[in-house]
Write a protein that binds this DNA or RNA. Structure first.
Lengths: 153, 153
DNA sequence: CTATACTCTACTAAGTCAATAGAGATTTGT
DNA sequence: ACAAATCTCTATTGACTTAGTAGAGTATAG
């Protein structure tokens, strides 16, 4: 049931960008160092998040990344779905990545009915947690005194 | 966030065994045909479930598999954990498969705190659903009239 | 015009997944 | 004792995914 390292890195990067939303763009290098993420790998991930439309970039000397919309409008569900695929434990209960499974009769499948509940539980949380809320949690977890650029996520 | 085909097959097999708990052992072949699971693959999975202690087997002509304990005492959580590993989306919030993650400070990690909630939600469901309850659901989903051996899961 | 930073495409080593294969061990019925 | 059915153990394989790495190219500030 695990998400990949790639997905986790994406969330960590978005959190950094969320904490710097009202500031300037943030360089890949900076995120990479702050979060212990291999730089070239992070590059790919950010390009991917750009294709999703949640981040935007500026090239050149003063370049970097920033959120493309306010952190309130970036849900974890959207990000994880884009990077990882279905939130559901089995594809036959996924709304957006539905695939027929090999069981004899899906409509009477008991496993399916349990997995549907699991899916609902996961979705309910991840659809309702935004990058903005994650930023709030960061502030609660480490107090308000720190300089935003030093936030340890 | 998906579980593997292997895990799904394991659950389907256990459900068949649950429905036949008070009867004789069930042959691999029978489960395989009823559930569209490749026989040699299912063999491996059942051996694996045996090592977990939830099923037992009899060899030879009248051989087959059965549940090693009443279906009320086999939770989906235990099965999935054994086949798949952690139920948690990230290992740093897993109770039984804990692994340190690469983020700068785990205790102050906002992602971790969200993933903890996700884990709790998943565990809450899967720890409380047993094979017995799955069997109940099967009966509800397809009515009581059918011959147990014909149950379509 | 140059240093800095993002971008695009390709590659790869290691690991996992979903089987498949073959030979062996056990049990029941005759 | 023997045959047939069934589980068991160990190995292998092909396809795919993951987590990076690499190199050449493009845009921008100063």
């Amino acid at each position: 049931m695990k998400i990949s390292v790639r997905g986790e890195y994406a969330l960590r990067a978005l959190l950094v960008l969320g904490l710097n939303y009202d500031r300037d763009v943030v360089r890949i290098q900076t995120i990479s160092e702050q979060q212990n993420i291999p730089k070239r790998f992070l590059e790919q991930i950010l390009t991917d998040l750009k294709s999703l439309g949640v981040v935007e970039s500026r090239r050149g000397v003063a370049g970097g990344y920033r959120l493309a919309r306010p952190p309130e409008f970036v849900t974890l569900a959207a990000v994880i779905r884009h990077i990882e695929g279905p939130l559901a434990p089995v594809s036959c209960v996924s709304e957006r990545f539905y695939e027929k499974c090999s069981c004899p009769d899906e409509s009477k499948c008991a496993i399916r009915s349990v997995m549907k509940e699991v899916r609902e539980a996961i979705v309910k949380i991840l659809e309702n947690v935004t990058v903005a809320q994650m930023c709030e949690r960061v502030k609660l977890l480490q107090g308000e005194h720190t300089n935003p650029l030093d936030y340890v996520i």
